[in-house]
Simulated assay, not measured.
Amino acid sequence: ENQLNNDYYFSNPLDRGHLASRSSAAWGDSRREAKLAADDTFYYSNAALQHGNFNQDEWLALEDWVKDLTLDSTNKISVISGPIFGEFARSITPQGRSTALIPSGFFKVVVYIDQQHQLAVRAFMMMQDEEALRDKRGKQMFNFQRYQVSITEIEERTGLIFPQQLPDKNPLFFNENPDAVTDLNVHQFPEHIEVDAPDEMISMDDPRETVRDEEIPIFIAAALVNASGNEALGEWVSVINLSNEQVDFAGWKLKDPQDELVIEGVLGPGEAMKIGPLSPIKLGNQGGTISLYNPVGERVDRVKYPVQPNSLEDRPVIFAMRDLTMID
């Protein structure tokens, strides 16, 4: 009676999003046992109303990271996933059926024994409807962006209570902590760390980078990711100065998760420049991130670009019109 069925997924952009993925459950003492475990993930009780783009791209990427986790020492991990319903969650009412709330986002908590044989915890949230999750504290969390967060924030947003060992072993902070400010350079509470590659995840006692995205009006405006011919020569990134002052870019850097490129140039107010070739930076056609840092190592901007198929060859990705609105 209360179970959502295919009526809720028919002729709309919502997918039957697996909370426990088939590939993660497909294990056992025999091939038959592994298949039965995988088949158990296809019940509606394991499905949630997920936007198609969310389910087929960003949530899937997080599931793949969990499946391929190499930080553990026992070849075993525990994963807890579930929905988050915002204060103004949207709903769907199929003909003849009861109204169901659409999750505003989802969480995933990963627990394992690390290489030092200690309990380790990583917690993530992803939004699919940030309008329903506008927070009383801090900045907006953008749709389809993976954030590493604290266990306490997941508890507050869901009403769940996790064993005390989990928040104690999670490296991110929810409440203001003067020692974290001094020792780890944490300046935002609760913490939300954008994570689009394993290298961006925060571990226990990792110092945080200084982020000034909201303060300095210098932006990555566009990038040519899928260039025809020799991509290493054809790729470029453009940067725009939307401040009221001339900016000297000597010592500034563009970075991807693996490499960095020192840039130079001078831009007056409202001026832009194209930077390329980008080697050693590589803009992968399967999607990625680009970040801009000033000479003292503060992050001034960060953009995420999607998969670039052949149909988008030689068509730049435009970032300048992205929503930069910050809310209280």
Rank of each mutant, 00 (worst) to 15 (best):
S279L: 15
R32D: 13
Y9M: 04
A197C: 07
M273I: 13
L166S: 05
R137V: 15
V195C: 09
F162A: 02
E130H: 06
D323W: 11
G86H: 07
E131Y: 07
A26I: 05
S11Y: 07
G287R: 05
P13D: 02
R322E: 12
T41S: 03
S24D: 10
A132Q: 01
S243Y: 11
F189M: 08
W65V: 09
N6W: 13
F88K: 14
M127K: 00
F144T: 00
G251C: 10
G229P: 11
N55P: 08
A47T: 00
I263K: 12
G28I: 09
S45T: 13
L278E: 01
R31P: 03
Q308F: 03
R302F: 15
D314V: 12
G229F: 12
K35R: 12
L4A: 10
D39A: 14
R157D: 05
S228F: 01
F249M: 12
E214H: 14
I218K: 03
R322G: 04
G159I: 05
L133C: 05
S203P: 00
A48G: 06
K35W: 13
L224V: 12
Y147D: 00
V66A: 13
R16V: 04
D328H: 10
L312Q: 08
P103Q: 04
E87F: 01
L49V: 00
D314S: 07
E130N: 10
D114P: 11
E1I: 12
P178K: 08
D199M: 13
M125W: 05
L19Y: 03
K253P: 02
E264N: 15
F124V: 05
A180H: 13
K76A: 15
D168P: 06
E1H: 08
F107L: 00
L283H: 05
R137F: 15
P178L: 15
M321D: 03
V66M: 04
F189A: 07
